[in-house]
Design a protein around this nucleic acid. Structure first.
Lengths: 200, 200
DNA sequence: GTCATAAGCGGACTATAGTCCAGTTAAGCG
DNA sequence: CGCTTAACTGGACTATAGTCCGCTTATGAC
């Protein structure tokens, strides 16, 4: 019984002012990004708009990419839940190659739906992309599917390779020339080729 | 005759002081990078070490990635010449899939041989990688080979996809866990898969 | 209610990329 | 050799990410 109390009460409830300030920051950031574009908003501007100090901003979110991650949280979580427990082929129950294609398509939608924010979350500091929890989730998902579809291949590497095609930097660079549909088709073609000769 | 003079004499010989300063900067940058690591050297430090002003540095090289490109110039040019006129399979004369594999392997060697510098050249400003002349060269090379090996596919996109696997950011992130050989093997496996079912 | 304390706060401070422009000087010409 | 001019130079200046630390305050215990 004591143990239960400890476990449930442990994180001594986030302070009320902290909660308030986090809300203020996220709201302000979302508005500024919407109005002026993600690339034209400085952390100072966000702090000022939110009415908090800069130290607060960085204490809560670590850095610019952390702020982006926080803003993307909802969309990201939705995708993760669809993968874990949604209907196939994105969710469990379909053959691995189908699930991989569904994932690539769904992730591409997520990516293009929030391109600037995702880009900021990936490029704020060098290597940021690979350190974020979400990246590990996508990678793990792909590894499991690849091991099923191609037991002979280096699933760990191939999963990174697929994710490399879904990087925001690449998408942003190619988007003007190629457009969303062509990029999506290209990723699907590569995934299909990787899933084995029969899928090609 | 006048036209010839104009064409040959046009760039009115770089000023002597400019040449001297460019040398000084490149030498100083190379030494500082070697001694302290690419990530621990600021542009101010390079300017100071070279004994020139900061304005000079940026006037000559544009930005940090331009400086990296200048330092990589020799290695990059060597690879380009091997592709254009070296012995097959890297140079002309071999089947397209073989040439693609040879290119991937050779580029990987170049990449790992200068990882930090290449990374700096690609990440100094967002999208820098895709704006540099060399990137267009690699892309064009791959497009030609892909069109030969896979006339039905979207060669333009696939070429970008292959180059995405050879990005410095990705290589730097995976290198500690995967090592050079495994990464190289992985890229070759993807290239092989892309070259068509028979290569898989 | 009051007190102790740790979490939270905010703005001054640092580091660094990149800009700007007034002064300097190399190069070509007569 | 001196003049003209355009390119070059260098350092002061700006913008911005991120750090630091003394002050404030919410919270839980008594």
């Amino acid at each position: 019984m004591e143990l239960l109390q400890i476990l449930t009460a442990r994180p001594p409830r986030e302070r009320a002012d902290a909660v308030r300030n986090r809300e203020k920051v996220l709201t302000a950031a979302a508005r500024l990004f919407r109005e002026k574009g993600v690339d034209n908003v400085s952390m100072d501007a966000i702090a000022a708009e939110a009415g908090v100090g800069k130290g607060t901003l960085f204490r809560r979110f670590g850095d610019k990419s952390g702020l982006a991650v926080a803003l993307l949280d909802d969309a990201e979580r939705a995708l993760q839940e669809a993968i874990l427990s949604g209907p196939p082929p994105l969710g469990p129950g379909a053959p691995a190659p189908d699930r991989m294609a569904a994932f690539a398509a769904a992730y591409a939608d997520y990516l293009f739906g929030h391109l600037d924010l995702v880009r900021m979350s990936e490029s704020a500091s060098p290597g940021a992309r690979y350190r974020v929890g979400a990246y590990h989730f996508w990678h793990r998902h792909l590894v499991i599917l690849l091991e099923e579809a191609r037991p002979d291949a280096d699933a760990g590497y191939l999963a990174h390779a697929v994710l490399a095609l879904l990087g925001a930097e690449l998408a942003a660079a190619l988007h003007p020339d190629y457009g969303e549909d062509r990029l999506k088709a290209g990723v699907l073609a590569v995934v299909s080729a990787l899933c084995g000769p029969r899928g090609a």
